[in-house]
Design a protein around this nucleic acid. Structure first.
Length: 395
RNA sequence: UGUCUCAUGGUGUAAUGGUAGCACUACAGUUUUUGGUACUGUCUGUCUAGGUUCGAAUCCUGGUGAGACAA
């Protein structure tokens, strides 16, 4: 009987995943991962993980599976939290959960699983895995969207490697959320009616702006409104196709003199592109959206209305070193192009685009201009249901 | 100093005699295993002191404040 370590989080998805694995005949070991122990910033200084640990243990007992916990908080801090703050400090908007999967759940956690006698790990992610073989009979692992289009979490696994994927199992990927709930209820699991978790796993109940304010310094700066008829928006496009891509992918660069000061803020690094709330500036006919931030000058540039041209761009660039192919066999060579569907944030409907690999980076050229392309976020390209690759949007 | 205009919630405005509406902001909730977005809901107001009137944001007088023109 094959031994599998399952990440039991104390949520309903991993609980049911445990049950399904067991039903499939695996010897399941539930392993609770502690990745954050700090109590600062949490409500009423509660221990952030004790409740979930207890619930996970309860579920394990109910399902009659072996249960342990493992403390990965040092690793988590190094690989996820430090990255997160560093990105914010540089004016980018990180996705800690993508990193958490790449660096923790399918790395450090996998190592821990090995110590518990398993060489594969399972999680409660809503996504699927398939194996095909290449011409030499070598296996190729495919990462597919979860069957429930409403809960598909393949986006968060976009940075996994073939090696990581080869050791992963996603038991709930081919069933839908309501079914998961139903199974949990039928089994009488403690998690059956527990509400879905949301927000960065470790921050828990605290909202991110508050958390960031505790970690990053405040620095008063100005908010500059950019008119929608700025001449930079009517930029001339070069004839050469590659040059045009490069130019289209370049974010608009604003200076204070391009607009007028309409307010102040407490630190440009607290804001992200496309953000509407939190500026505290009223009196306009339409809401203001953040077009860009400049952490060097500590300026925030905003535009009025969802239709502001500064909010849209047709092309984005991913630096070569940030370009990751899950399907390494489908990786582009310099000079090649391919049609895929792309999303630039979790749950965004897939957008048709053409990927062009040039000497200086991967350029994703969308059929339709995209709103709020945000540096630091991950662009993920799909072929139908399959995640082909991903990369960090450059600035 | 003179003349004129204006003064509505945090902001921008609507209602010119019948008990104040809209947008933005803020807040709350929903959606969401990132951030953000989106959706729903809620709060806050007639500069001040008098007067006219059954009744005033709306008319009259004084005050205070802001702007424009005038030298």
């Amino acid at each position: 009987m094959e031994r599998i370590v399952l990440g039991l989080s104390g949520g309903v998805d991993s609980s049911v995943a445990a049950y399904l694995l067991k039903k499939q005949g695996f010897e399941v070991v539930g392993l609770y991962m502690i990745n954050w122990k700090e109590t600062v910033g949490t409500l009423s200084g509660e221990c952030p993980y004790e409740d979930d640990l207890l619930i996970a243990e309860l579920v394990a007992r109910k399902l009659d599976i072996e249960f342990h916990s493992v403390d990965l908080s040092d690793r988590y801090r190094e690989r996820v939290v430090d990255y997160m703050f560093s990105e914010y400090e540089h004016g980018r908007t990180p996705n800690p959960d993508v990193l958490c999967n790449r660096e923790i759940k399918f790395d450090a956690f996998l190592e821990a699983a090995n110590r518990f006698g398993a060489d594969k790990v399972a999680t409660g992610h809503y996504c699927r895995k398939e194996v095909i073989t290449d011409v030499n009979g070598k296996p190729i692992y495919r990462l597919l969207a979860g069957s429930d289009p409403n809960k598909d979490q393949s986006y968060f696994l976009c940075q996994l490697s073939q090696d990581q994927l080869s050791k992963a199992l996603f038991p709930v990927g081919d069933i839908e959320k309501p079914e998961v709930r139903r199974i949990a209820e039928e089994l009488g699991l403690a998690t059956a009616f527990k509400r879905d978790s949301q927000g960065i796993c470790f921050v828990g109940k605290v909202d991110l702006p508050v958390f960031l304010q505790q970690k990053l310094d405040k620095k008063m700066g100005e908010v500059v409104e950019i008119p929608s008829d700025l001449k930079a928006y009517a930029r001339m496009m070069p004839e050469n196709a590659d040059e045009r891509l490069r130019k289209q992918a370049k974010p608009y660069f604003y200076r204070k003199k391009d607009g007028r000061v309409v307010g102040s803020h407490q630190g440009a690094h607290f804001y992200t592109v496309g953000q509407r709330k939190g500026l505290g500036i009223g009196g306009f006919d339409n809401p203001l959206f953040v077009l860009a931030t400049d952490v060097q000058e500590n300026l925030i540039f905003v535009g009025e209305g969802v239709d502001h041209p500064g909010l849209y761009r047709k092309t984005l660039k991913i630096n070569l070193e940030d370009c990751h192919w899950i399907r390494t066999d489908l990786a582009l060579n310099v000079g090649e192009s391919v049609r895929y569907e792309v999303r630039i944030r979790y749950r965004q409907p897939l957008q048709k685009a053409t990927l062009h690999l040039l000497e200086d980076g991967l350029f994703i050229d969308f059929d339709i201009p995209q709103q709020s392309i945000t540096p630091g976020q991950f662009a993920v390209w799909y072929s139908n249901d399959e995640v082909i690759g991903s990369g960090v949007i450059s600035d």
